[in-house]
Each structure stands twice: as C-alpha cells, then as structure tokens.
Simulated assay, not measured.
Amino acid sequence: MSEPANFEQLGVRHICGISGGKDSSALAVYLKDRVPEMEYFFCDTGAELPETYEFLTRLEVILAKPIARLNADRGFDHWFEIFRGALPSPQMRWCTKNMKIKPLEKWIGDDPAVSYVAIRSDESNRKGYVSTKANIESRFPFVEEGVDHDGVMRILEDAGIGLPAYYEWRTRSGCYFCFYQRKAEWIGLADRHPELFERAVAIEQKVLQDAGVGGDADFSDQAMKGRQYTWSGGETLVQLRARRDEILERHEAAMARTARTRPNLPLVEALAGVLDDDDGTEPCTVCAL
C-alpha cells in the first residue's frame, strides 16, 4: 500500500457513509487519522439486521466518535405506505432514493462537501453513490491508494473489529428483506431471524392480496412483467421456504466444489461466489459497500 494521499481540504465538510458492510467500515477506519474532521453517517431504513446495528456500535468505539443516523423517523414502513402498489425492485428502487440518497443530500444541504466512497481498487469498474449536486465532490481513496479486498480485510483485522456476524451466512449489508438477496440468504434469514422472515412474508402477502394475485401464480408470465409482487424473483417467500432443503443442498454442494478448487478462499469470498452461481444478481452499491 502506498503512502496515504493528503485528503484534507479546508472549508468543506468531509463525510463517509457506512452501510454496515466490510468495505465502507474499513474505509471509515482507514480515514480516521487521515481526516480527523470526518463526519460518519449511516442511513437507517429501520429494517436493518440486528447484526448491523451491533457492528455499528462497535465501530463507533473504534472511530471514537458517533455515527450520525439519518432517516430514523422515515424508514421503510413510511415509504411503503406511499408506494403501496409495488415492492421496491431493481427497476424501481424507491427504497434507495428515498431512504438513502434524499436523507443524505438533505443532511449535507448546500454545504461544500467531499464524500468518500468505499469502492476498492480491485473493483474500480463498480459505481457507488456519486451525487449530481455541484456542492458534493466524490473521492475514492481505496482506488487512489491501491487498497484491494485483502487490504480491506487487513484494515479490519488490525483495528480489532473484524467482520459483522451476518457474513457467516450473507454477503451483503442492507435491509433484511432486500430484493437483491439470494435464495440461500433468504433461507439463512429464516433460520437465524425467523421473526424478520415472517415480517417480509407479511409485506409480500399484503402486496399480493392488494393486487389480486394468487399465491401460486406463475410470476414468469408475461402479464406479471413490470410489477414487483415478490421479494425474490419467480416465487413467493412461502414457496421459497418450501424449497429449503433443495436450496441448501445445492448451496452446500457448491460450497464443497469451491473448497476443492480454491481451498484457501476466505468464507466471505466463497459465499459470494457460490451465491452468485445461484442467482447471479448484483447488489445495490449505495447500500452494500
């Protein structure tokens, strides 16, 4: 890793968003002494995993300053009432717009600000949140300084904080019902947080009922296209849970293949590769860094 660049600029706010994921958490630690005036923030949807909130508390100790919670009074339930006709989806990410981007831009206001984004050097083709507001400049310290996945892991280990506990079964931060979630991750949620899984089921069933769609509908039918009736593509959560053994069997077989071909691969990377085979979806980079 090269010597750190001089990120300090006078007369502007310096902000670093934390999603609860490994990359943004590592960036917060990385910038702690480099930018002492840094303001840390977390856009709270009110639907985060318990492991995320616990990790943020531990991270505040490492950073020796609070992480501002944005959006605490207008979480998912508020916006779901407004967008009652459909669940958020990759085609209509009202959750990201209203619970992440708008609260952040309101918090910054018209102040000149530098926003530090946790894109790593080994994924510089990815896109994180880049504001279109003229007063917000985006910087990518890990790209500028050549910090890759291994570098992120070292930062977290050296700080003594490690990874959030959800990385044992899930590869991304974000809402417990995130529509980018993979099949095996939904099963992980059902096993580890059954009450949250049931809440996601209730939301989904309400949408189906309001739309007059039967629970055994074929969601691949042309008539269904353009609307998001289910959290996971092609089936309801009830149907997905009924396939629990099948999904876990495929997942465990894929993990075993990965262990044979890449025996030294860390668990979090092995999970990501296996789950990509299962669903092939990319996460929301605003939420999941």
Results as ranks from 00 to 15, higher is better:
M1N: 11
P4E: 15
L10A: 10
C16P: 03
S24G: 05
A26V: 04
L31I: 00
E37K: 15
F41H: 10
G46I: 04
A47W: 15
L49Y: 12
E54I: 00
F55C: 03
T57F: 03
V61S: 11
A68R: 14
R69A: 10
D77S: 04
R84L: 08
P88K: 11
P88W: 08
Q91R: 13
Q91E: 15
M92C: 03
K97W: 13
K100S: 01
D110P: 06
D111M: 13
D111I: 05
P112H: 04
V114N: 15
V114A: 08
Y116F: 13
D122N: 07
S124D: 15
S131N: 05
T132F: 07
N135Y: 07
S138V: 03
P141G: 01
F142M: 03
G146L: 08
D150L: 12
R154V: 00
R154A: 08
G162F: 12
P164K: 12
P164E: 11
T171S: 06
R172S: 06
F179K: 09
Q181P: 01
R182I: 00
A184E: 15
D191R: 14
E198I: 01
E198G: 04
A200Q: 10
A202H: 11
K206V: 04
D210A: 07
D210C: 01
G215W: 06
D216E: 12
S220E: 09
T230N: 12
W231I: 06
S232A: 13
E235P: 08
L237R: 14
T261H: 09
D277T: 03
T281Q: 11
T281D: 10
C284I: 00
V286I: 00
L289M: 13
